[in-house]
Simulated scan of single mutants.
Amino acid sequence: MNDAGTALDASAFVTLLVEERGDRLAVQLNRPEVRNAIDQTMVDELHAVCAYLERTPKVLILSGTAADPETGAKAIFASGADIAQLRERRRDDALAGINSSLFDRIAKLPMPVIAALDGYALGGGAELAYAADFRIGTSGLRMGNPETGLGIMAAAGATWRLRELVGEPLAKEILLAGRTLTGEECLSAGLITELVEPGALLDAAHALAGRIARQEPLAVRLTKTVFHSPREVHPLIDNLTQGLLFESAAKFDRMQQFLDRKKQS
């Protein structure tokens, strides 16, 4: 976990399990004893992951703890912020945006982020998932924002990301009435794009990462940036970015390969 170095030291993490491949980084939240509650240590370690991916762009896969039939432990993505720590936070902590700044950083990573969701994804755990570019879930997924029941609000992105993802009526039901969605309801609402069996969840996430990795990396990075740009900068930003890509060597190589395959078919 070295921000200044050139490689990610997976052995330095205590709340995350990290597996790195050539084109992706798989990060598992790993505090099962407290249902993967997001504490300050996890926040710091996820910032270190972001710092690495900002220097070395790769697809990020975020997952939680799988169910364990031997112990009876249930699957969990993240139950939210650590309530014991959250109870002691005051006004200045809220203004510091501890979770919101992290989730915004994750959303802005150069390459896409995939959230693989099983079990509870609640509160801050749900907001972490909302910050991803893709969400894949299981029928056992339970996603929602119960913050108002604890006397606070969902302040790490849910009040605006969730509205963009599922629309205002359902977003208000989740945020103001404490509705928790099942995996099937998440799929119906478009909050997840795929519903798979728990044992196939990570395979599905890696398959999606593989499809992304087959695209031209610079084109993916710039498309993500343009996609999230404010409406008022379009179409100028589209034209300027396309101009950059039109001059790239990868564009000429990939288009020539396409033409060569077409001649052979």
Rank of each mutant, 00 (worst) to 15 (best):
T6Q: 14
T6I: 10
A7W: 08
S11E: 15
F13D: 12
L17K: 14
E20F: 11
L25F: 03
A26M: 01
A26V: 03
Q28E: 14
R31W: 00
N36P: 05
Q40P: 00
E45C: 09
C50I: 00
L60M: 02
L62W: 12
G64M: 08
D82M: 08
E88P: 09
R91H: 00
A94F: 10
A96G: 10
I98A: 13
A107D: 11
A107V: 04
D118T: 09
G123H: 15
D133Q: 06
G137V: 02
G137A: 13
S139G: 05
G144Q: 08
G144I: 07
P146N: 06
M153G: 12
M153V: 13
A154N: 04
G157C: 02
W160D: 15
R161T: 04
G167K: 03
G178D: 13
G183C: 10
E184Y: 07
E194K: 09
E194C: 03
L195C: 01
G199F: 03
A204S: 15
H206F: 10
A209N: 06
G210K: 08
R211I: 07
P217V: 00
R221Y: 02
R221K: 05
L222K: 11
P230V: 11
E232Y: 14
I237Q: 01
L240T: 03
L244S: 00
F246S: 14
S248P: 07
K251P: 01
L259V: 01
R261M: 14
Q264W: 10
